[in-house]
């Protein structure tokens, strides 16, 4: 998928979070890395149409994304979004969470939606969890159900905002395995992550965001072995210090 970010700026109540973000590439799996508070999540929300930028343009596969509320609705329906935490409706069961967008955003009838949801649950080994409410599920299960919900709408792009940062290593592996499998199946993904191993192995492109802007980007092999900027070198030294 081709993506172009053209001078994207975002500020909240006078506080600048993103300044002049420019980036252009063609990717299958893109990892966004960088220190906390650098604006990674904000950038992902702009790409997903959840936040309008203060200024600047976004192009996906050559088509400019309009940030008028009406057209955003259509844009959001082509994208799957997985949140860091609390990404399920708390008053609905796991199955209902997956079915709701199918019925109410995609006008499937209830039987079709239930059928598709059940297929996904079976595929991801979640059959036992279908009738549980979010508070009855482990963090890892919640994230996998979020991914299942995002997959159910057959998105052209899947966005994930630190999907494993609230999970212990075992559950993290569980979620990343599922994701790796989907990427291998040709799904286009952008993931904001602190899992450097995953960014390196499962994503062929990497963007490094620091201080509200894209500092460095490129092929992941190159980014991790020959970082060009001081900022990225310092960041990698810090996060990889305790890696085996």
């Amino acid at each position: 998928m081709k993506i172009v970010l053209d001078k994207i700026c975002k500020s909240f109540a006078g506080k600048t979070v993103l300044k002049n973000v420019c980036y252009e590439d063609d990717f299958n799996a893109l990892a966004v890395i960088g220190p906390s508070g650098a604006g990674k999540s904000t950038l992902l929300r702009i790409i997903g149409g959840l936040l309008p930028p203060t200024s600047g343009d976004l192009y996906l596969d050559g088509i400019k994304v309009s940030f008028s509320e009406k057209e955003l609705l259509a844009h959001r329906r082509t994208i799957g979004f997985v949140f860091q935490t609390k990404g399920l409706f708390e008053h609905l069961t796991a199955l209902e969470n997956v079915m709701l967008p199918l019925i109410h955003s995609f006008q499937l009838d209830k039987a079709e939606a239930a059928e598709r949801a059940r297929e996904l649950f079976a595929r991801f080994g979640l059959e036992e969890e279908g009738h549980k409410y979010p508070h009855q599920l482990s963090g890892g299960q919640q994230q996998r159900i979020q991914i299942a919900r995002a997959m159910a709408i057959k998105p052209k792009l899947l966005l994930l905002d630190e999907p494993t940062s609230a999970l212990d290593p075992e559950l993290t592996a569980e979620v990343l395995d599922m994701l790796g499998e989907l990427q291998a199946g040709g799904l286009k993904t952008i993931i904001v992550t602190h899992e450097m191993g995953f960014a390196k192995k499962a994503c062929e492109k990497v963007v490094f965001v620091a201080d509200g802007t894209v500092v460095e980007s490129g092929d992941s092999r190159q980014i991790f072995t020959e970082p060009q900027t001081k900022a990225l070198q310092a960041f990698l030294n810090k996060v990889l210090e305790w890696q085996p």
Binding site: L50, F89, P101, H104
Partner: peptide
């Protein structure tokens, strides 16, 4: 987060009220 989620799954404001805000 519940409202952001409603946005992300492509619900209209009216449906967000009926299916999310009101029951919660």
């Amino acid at each position: 987060s519940q409202f952001e989620l409603a946005k992300a799954v492509g619900l209209t404001p009216a449906k967000t009220f009926r299916l999310v805000t009101f029951p919660l």
